[in-house]
Design a binder for these strands. Structure first.
Lengths: 132, 132
DNA sequence: ATATGAACATCATGTTCATTG
DNA sequence: CAATGAACATGATGTTCATAT
């Protein structure tokens, strides 16, 4: 279910129109899709990059949540998984991900953007209303 | 516990530094404190006003969550409760709230502002990173 | 140790129920 | 019905455990 009649919501499971801010899951899915646009990535690599990116903003996503975002994206047909042997690694193979449906990915990101804009509106209204 | 060593977090119960966006509870507490600066309010009145304010942004807080925010603020000593008879109401009395400790309230709002600024940073970074 | 994945635990909330005028 | 409050239910996410290099 990609579309939604109400506001700028993205995720599937929520009540009519009570949502506050965007969910971490949707936020991570958006970032993962962007990363995969340029190259292949594997799970922990994404975890590390995201943590590095958000460290200055005191947000350190957990590995489990990043993996869940990946499974979601795969289940929903946005990305696909490949197996790859890493040179010089004792590990036989790791899971690398790539975009499966470029248009679909773009559409999802568009929905997320709408929700982020909405959230930004909430925060800016809060700043104006409470700290003027 | 008002202070926090880590980032710009506000609420008490969370792990070291993994928080994503600000919690609805803290957000509502900030708004309630601002409303109470000017006049007395009672519970449902706050619910209705908040819903009106946020309707354009597709956020409709539940009455239970607003009440929980009020109980929190009272428990933590920011506000106090009075009982008042409403003219023309069949109901004997309702609970009205007012600021209990002006300085403390100001300090709390300052913490919330820091967290909102941090969240705003996350959203703006996301817009820059994913929709450039 | 790295990498993936699942299982379990908990918090933040939403939904529903109860009570009193 | 308005108002408050509590109870219950669920969802989103964090923490821990398991397995295989």
């Amino acid at each position: 279910m990609l579309s939604n009649t109400g506001g700028g919501f993205v995720e599937e499971k929520q009540s009519s129109s009570t949502e506050f801010l965007i969910k971490q899951r949707a936020f991570l899915k958006m970032y993962i899709l962007t990363y995969l646009e340029d190259q292949h990535w594997y799970g922990l690599q994404l975890v590390e990059e995201l943590r590095t990116q958000f460290k200055p903003l005191a947000f350190q996503p957990q590995h489990s949540e990043v993996y869940r975002a990946l499974y979601d994206l795969e289940d929903e047909g946005y990305i696909k998984k490949g197996k790859v042997k890493l040179e010089g690694s004792k590990r036989a193979e790791i899971a690398i991900y790539m975009i499966a449906d470029k248009e679909k990915a773009k559409a999802y990101k568009k929905l997320v953007k709408a929700d982020i804009d909405r959230c930004d509106g909430l925060l800016r209204k809060a700043l104006a209303d409470n700290y003027s």
